[in-house]
Design a protein around this nucleic acid. Structure first.
Lengths: 204, 204
DNA sequence: TAGATTGTTAATCGATTAACAATC
DNA sequence: TAGATTGTTAATCGATTAACAATC
């Protein structure tokens, strides 16, 4: 019904969320689009356009209430709901991300860890299951999110299995690209590092 | 002199690099803009526009030579040069990234690890130095890149010190935003996860 | 009321797509 | 040569910025 929200706007939402959180913890209760835009390195116009995609959160002649805007953006992003996730590929990166996610509890629950070779040692207090247990586990535990910290060669195949398991979103660290209709956020570390190389290289 | 390359194009370069690498390892020697665009989910026009920002790499009536295009893009990104880096903040994520970077050797050298509390245990075969040794170390070892895997509160202050140490680029995992003129690539894990939440929430 | 600042429409800018002449 | 496909210019689309009327 309403006009579609562009991906560019969505990608700015977590930044708004972060800056509003900071303002809030500094005890600031109201902010104008101009002040917020300066803090964030945007134009005031853009701030107002962005926020108005979702509704009139401000008050003319006054500005925006920090606390309520923060809550609104959190709700739009869907921070509040309780997410359940599994992680597949418990190598170096997988272990680190596991601990990172475990620390987000109770808003976020990492309910299972999987690896091609199940290990005796626990990570983030959880045992590591073998890939053959994936389908059974998902049937029982119903995670919505799968974190892929595994090699790019196997990512597409695992993604297919996950789709059949009812996974609703993939956080992909594999470095490969996943096609298919399951929503996916890619964290391409190698790409990011290459872009840094380019930037260092100079503007040419 | 030539027209400036847009950031949108730059961000696609690592993807081209990745796909060309794959084609190359499959033994494919030539590819047309149409074929490459299909593989990557772009338009053929865009592929030609992108590549032409840097020069006429193709041949009319034929297409692009996979191997040489791969090499060209690598050179544009600056993959070849030998980078030296330090990493600051050897927690879970820092340890994992250290090991990731160590595996890139010899094209990339992680020469030093730092933490507020220097530890006895080595990570990725390297000892962990205290922050007071930062300036001296940089003077001697001349790293160009600093990887920040530390809390957002301290990131700006550390970034300032790094600038004075002659650091040319920052790979920032802190979750905070760095202002200043040192080129910086941000890996915002929390932001990425929130965007996944939004996508799962549905299109509205 | 007067001043401030939003919400929203219009103008501008830049990036993507389409078209086609050049040429291998 | 005829066919294919690039390089490049022109057209379109979408996102950002500017402007201003609405209103707190």
């Amino acid at each position: 019904m309403g006009k579609k929200i562009s991906i560019a706007v969505i990608r700015r939402l977590p930044r708004y969320y972060r800056h509003l959180s900071e303002l809030s913890s500094m005890g600031i209760t109201k902010i104008s689009s101009t002040e917020l835009s300066k803090k964030m390195g945007l134009t005031a116009s853009q701030v107002r356009q962005d926020l108005n995609c979702f509704g009139g959160f401000g008050r003319q002649g006054y500005g925006y209430q920090v606390e309520s805007l923060f809550a609104e953006i959190g709700a739009i992003l869907g921070i509040d709901r309780d997410y359940r996730a599994i992680l597949i590929g418990v190598g170096n990166l997988g272990s680190a991300i596991s601990r990172y996610l475990s620390a987000l509890s109770p808003f976020f629950s990492l309910v299972g860890l999987f690896d091609i070779e199940p290990k005796k040692t626990k990570v983030a207090g959880k045992e590591i299951l073998g890939m053959n247990e994936l389908e059974g586990f998902c049937k029982k535990e119903k995670p919505q999110i799968a974190v892929l910290t595994l090699p790019p060669e196997v990512a597409p195949e695992v993604a297919d299995r996950l789709k059949k398991c009812g996974i609703k979103g993939i956080w992909n660290f594999s470095g490969g690209e996943l096609k298919g209709d399951v929503p996916c956020e890619n964290v391409h570390l190698a790409d990011s590092l290459m872009i840094l190389f380019y930037q260092i290289g100079g503007e040419k």
